[in-house]
């Protein structure tokens, strides 16, 4: 199973790419393309949203970042891709969590550091995605970043930020460009499927960190 999180949605438009294009549209379009390609390759794909609005299931409440992490953690995917888009830079930017790998004891705040045992796996996944994108001649930036909710995910997780093809920001919505990126990512995930392993300390007793208490109007438990 693969989890795709098209960032933003609904009233949260994300960054303004051009006057008529917002980040939430680009991430959703890229997620659709990637989902089709992955489904064709035999993956079961879960997305945190499949329309413009980002709301909880059967509820008008907006989906919080913690909700997105909860969906991912309950699905137990072999990879989580958090899809973003930006008008700055070019190509694709890949980020893994900035947390230090901690295979040992649980941290003081397990929800905000749940990714720590998975950081090594996330970095491997990041490298494989990067290799596939480089082979596809797509400019690449790889680094580490603190982007919520990646630190709360209990799966190999990578933030994929789609940047323009060249210097033209409107190219972000170019279907052929998105298709090229999606094909490279899908090819890497096929290769990754046979390698994903949970961290050592989670092999025997799979655990999930408790989510923080949600506000009354916010999200689901």
């Amino acid at each position: 199973m693969i989890l795709l999180d098209p960032a933003h949605g609904g009233v949260d438009s994300g960054s303004r790419i051009t006057d008529s294009l917002s980040e939430k549209e680009v991430t959703l379009n890229l997620a659709f393309k990637l989902r089709s390609l992955l489904a064709a390759r035999g993956f079961n794909v879960v997305t945190t949203r499949d329309s413009d609005s980002a709301t909880e299931p059967n509820s008008p409440n907006p989906l919080t970042l913690d909700d997105r992490a909860g969906i991912a953690n309950h699905a137990h995917p072999v990879a989580c891709l958090l899809l973003h888009a930006t008008a700055s830079g070019s190509g694709v930017h890949l980020y893994s969590s900035e947390l230090d790998p901690t295979p040992g004891e649980p941290a003081a705040n397990p929800w905000l550091t749940a990714q720590a045992p998975w950081v090594v796996q996330s970095q491997r996944l990041q490298k494989q995605l990067g290799t596939a994108l480089t082979r596809a001649n797509i400019p690449l930036v790889m680094s580490r970043a603190s982007v919520r909710p990646v630190d709360s995910l209990t799966c190999p997780a990578v933030v994929v930020e789609l940047a323009p093809n060249g210097s033209d920001a409107s190219s972000l919505n170019d279907a052929s460009y998105q298709q090229r990126v999606a094909e490279a990512l899908a090819a890497a995930l096929v290769f990754w499927k046979n390698q994903a392993q949970p961290p050592d300390r989670l092999l025997d007793t799979p655990t999930m960190p408790p989510m923080p208490p949600s506000p009354p109007t916010g999200a689901r438990p």
């Binding site: 930006t86 008008a87 700055s88 980020y95 680094s143 603190s146 982007v147 930020e161």
Partner: peptide, 12 residues
Amino acid sequence: HPSGVEVETLTL
């Protein structure tokens, strides 16, 4: 501030 993972992370 410009919005985006890369540009915000680089500022920090």
